[in-house]
Nucleic acid binder design. Structure first.
Length: 507
RNA sequence: GCCCCGUUAGCUCAUCUGGUAGAGCGCCGGACUUUUAAUCCGGUGGGGCGGGUUCGAGUCCCGCACGGGGCACCA
């Protein structure tokens, strides 16, 4: 990786004309660069390549929690991090040092360090990175502190950090320059640590249940597994268009046909659609498939996996994830929320009439019966589903990859899981009959020919795989970003994606 | 794509009806050997971009860019 000692890294701050020695920011940078040069002049070995043996600050804090106010030790500990604050000067100063685990106070004393080192340490800028050895004490004001015995400047911050007290609140800057957000806002650091723990917990659960983690193509000749518009790209040597996957479903099912029996893939999917507080064009999904299981078995798995993720994230919010979650039928959920029994209005015109009759705020023009029913669910049911809920048994027209319901004609064995007013997962008893699958694809193909850009393309390779014989299978797709949103209490996906998609910066 | 709101110093925020744009932090200089949003004195630095109205625009008008919220779209 790049050394952090030398140049400003050009960066993407929008400004191209960096006139040296001008005003404001440029002046600050020039001052800091001059300081870096002074450090280099004073010490040819300044800015070393390594700083070995540093302990996490949190470990030092924990180990000396018992120390009494005013008590001093001769125990030397080595830490490294970024200077976040400085108080006092004269012949002694205090500084705050931050690493990824926490913050510790440093005490710099002229009589300990000597004139040259003391001046060097106390004239460093906020944002500079240092490593040091220091003796542990608890100050008269009760704060655990390291009395600096020796230190090395590891890197110079040429640009000033955000406000030490108010942090960085401008959301645009927080998203575009996430490194500044992470430097300034501990809360933001915490969210991404929680995200990492959620992902570990999901993998841990599936690994523990005997699932095999696999990697299937991101560049796909034909996209499938969801109803969405893809990103298209082109491979030069093969001279063919390829699509970034919108889902992993079809490849994973081929692995079930291949006999792997329990597989999962956790990774990015890409959908070329609008961005919103719950949609980023690339997002993280885990899909798992399990032979000899149906959608009810997978509902139990989701309850367990989310419980594991919530525990790993240290979830302390108001949602109770304890099993069993609420379960309600698709038809019943709509009827409860709107008073409309969609099965009693079996065609689009009739359903449209019922919607108009109740004065529901919803666009209905040109929509088919299943589209109307789905819109009723997403507009009037989903926002109210704060507690974890399975909505079961969807119309077949919305679900070309799900198996017909064993007892409810016209419906398929499918559930969607909701929490915090948001869909987080989707599952089927998978359709395994190649002839039915072929018909479903043909129906989708007709929709596509009629102009529906999100219809499912016909995938003959997939159907032929089914013709080899696929066991009864349950499959689930769980949206990691949305799960993290729920577990961290964030209301925007941009708060849980490190570098969310944005427009080009303005002038 | 549509509607509403926002954009002032490196960061966080002020700025009555149009009349020379202020503060804190940071940074620079000075004082201070237990401070913690350290304190005290002095200094530094600014109206997103492009037009218009006006004697005069951060402020009023138009356009553009980016962001936020909502709608549309979207699992």
């Amino acid at each position: 990786m790049s050394g952090s000692d030398e140049r400003p890294s050009g960066g993407e701050d929008g400004s191209s004309g960096e006139e040296p020695g001008r005003h404001g920011l440029q002046e600050l940078i020039a001052e800091r660069r001059a300081k870096a040069q002074r450090l280099r002049s004073a010490d040819p070995d300044a800015f070393p390549y390594t700083f070995a043996g540093a302990e996490p600050i949190a470990a030092v804090l924990d180990a000396y929690e018992h120390l009494d106010t005013g008590e001093e030790t001769e125990d030397s500990h080595r830490v490294a991090g970024r200077i976040a604050a400085r108080r006092g000067a004269g012949k002694a100063a205090f500084m705050d040092l931050v690493d990824r685990t926490g913050k510790i106070q440093l005490h710099a004393r002229l009589d300990v360090l000597g004139k040259e080192a003391f001046e060097q340490l106390t004239t460093l800028d906020l944002g500079d990175l240092i490593g040091l050895d220091g003796a542990v004490l608890r100050s008269r004001h009760g704060e655990l502190t390291l009395r600096v015995e020796r230190f090395e400047v590891l890197a110079k911050a040429l640009r000033p950090p955000p406000d030490k007290h108010h942090g960085l609140t401008d959301v645009e800057t927080r998203y575009r320059r996430r490194e500044l957000d992470l430097i300034a806002n501990e809360e933001s650091r915490r969210v991404f640590l929680q995200r990492a723990r959620v992902i570990s917990a999901v993998r841990g659960y599936l690994d523990g249940e005997g699932f095999v983690e696999v990697e299937t193509p991101i560049l796909q000749p034909l996209y499938g597994g969801a109803l969405a518009r893809p990103f298209t790209t082109h491979h030069n040597a093969l001279d063919r268009d390829l699509y970034l996957r919108i889902a992993t479903e079809l490849y994973l099912k081929r692995l079930i046909v291949g006999g792997l029996e329990r597989v999962y893939e956790l990774g990015k999917d890409f959908r070329n659609e609008g961005v919103s507080h719950k949609h980023n064009p690339e997002f993280t999904m885990v899909e798992w498939y399990e032979a000899y299981a149906d959608y009810e078995a997978e509902a139990l798995r989701l309850e367990q996996i989310v419980a594991a993720a919530a525990a790993a994230a240290g979830y302390e919010g108001e949602i109770d994830f304890a099993a069993p979650w609420q379960r309600i039928g698709f038809v019943e959920a709509i009827e409860q929320a709107t008073g409309i029994d969609v099965t009693a209005h079996g065609d689009a015109d009739s359903l449209r009439g019922a919607i108009a009759e109740r004065g529901l705020e919803m666009a209905t023009a040109g929509l088919s019966w299943p589209q109307l029913a789905d819109d009723l669910l997403s507009k009037f049911v989903e926002p109210g589903l704060a507690r974890p809920t399975f909505v079961l048994d969807y119309p077949v027209a919305l679900s070309p990859l799900a198996r017909d319901h064993r007892s409810k004609p016209g419906l398929v064995e499918r559930w969607e899981a909701f929490a915090g007013g948001m869909e987080i997962a989707n599952a089927f008893s998978e359709l395994i009959d190649p002839d039915v699958q072929r018909e479903r694809f043909a129906a989708q193909h007709r929709l596509g020919a009629a102009g529906d850009e999100e219809s499912h393309p016909y995938d003959e390779t997939f159907v032929q795989a089914l013709e080899q014989g696929m066991p009864p299978t349950g499959g689930v797709g769980l949206g990691i970003d949305r799960l993290v949103m729920v577990l961290t209490g964030r209301d925007s996906i941009r708060e849980v994606v490190l570098f969310p998609a944005m427009r080009e910066p303005g002038a």
